[in-house]
Amino acid sequence: MNKPYAIVSKIGAMRSTPAAIVAFTCLSLLVDNIAYSIAFAFLPHVFDDMKLASESQLGIVTTLYGVGTFITSIISGIVSDKMGRRKPLMLIGAVGYGISGIVLFFSHKFWHILVYKLVNGLASGCIYPLSIAIIGDVYPQKLLGLKMSFIQVFGNLGYMVGPLIGGALYDKVGVHGSATLLIERS
């Protein structure tokens, strides 16, 4: 009877170790960058198929993502430092990804795509900077080099994988497939 409790207790203790925090952060940033880049492969096709806007207006979509990350990166950093906790705001970011997926799922106008990318940016602004800050919270400065390199590797892997996933899903099931992935992932 005590054996299952002991296993759960060990898992609980392991999840707050610095190595587990690095692993969670790497996974978190991988997912964050996949979510960020998933639409790049198919948004030009969506614009063309739905006659939403010209492909040249993709810059506006990307700009709104940047505006979202700018706003929430600053706010989430200030709030998490004052609270002394980072995980609740990261959960809010994860929920934001779900919301952005829902917006994308029901998109049929240009302004819907703008809202999708803005909400996606707001969510990323909660996830990305706080994930990096968590690493700084648990490791001394002299040990951060290797940990930050892991973060860069997983972040860049997300940038490589996201467009591949988004393009493949769009080819098979259209916008709804990619949006469903964003909704389910959160």
Rank of each mutant, 00 (worst) to 15 (best):
T180N: 02
S9F: 02
S100Q: 01
F42K: 13
A41E: 10
Y65H: 00
T72V: 03
G84T: 12
V103G: 07
P163Q: 05
I99L: 04
I11C: 01
A39F: 12
A13M: 05
P163D: 04
I60R: 07
I71Y: 04
A20H: 04
I34K: 14
K147I: 14
L143K: 15
Y139D: 12
A94S: 11
L143R: 11
T17A: 06
G167Q: 09
R15S: 09
N2G: 14
I151V: 15
L181F: 06
A53R: 13
A23R: 10
Q57I: 13
Q57K: 15
I78V: 06
T63S: 09
I113W: 04
S149V: 08
V119L: 02
Q57E: 15
V95D: 14
Y97S: 00
L52Q: 12
L144G: 07
K3D: 03
A94Q: 09
I74M: 15
Y65R: 04
K51E: 13
A20R: 08
G121I: 04
G93D: 10
V67D: 04
S37W: 07
D48W: 14
I134G: 06
S131W: 12
A6H: 01
A94W: 11
L143Y: 15
G98W: 01
N2P: 01
K10G: 00
I113F: 05
I134D: 04
F70A: 08
S80P: 12
A23N: 08
M148L: 12
G59C: 10
G174T: 14
F70W: 01
L143C: 13
Y36R: 06
I7M: 03
F47L: 12
S178K: 11
V161T: 04
G96C: 11
Q152T: 05
A41F: 00
K82R: 15
I151L: 08
N33S: 06
I92S: 14
V8L: 11
R185L: 08
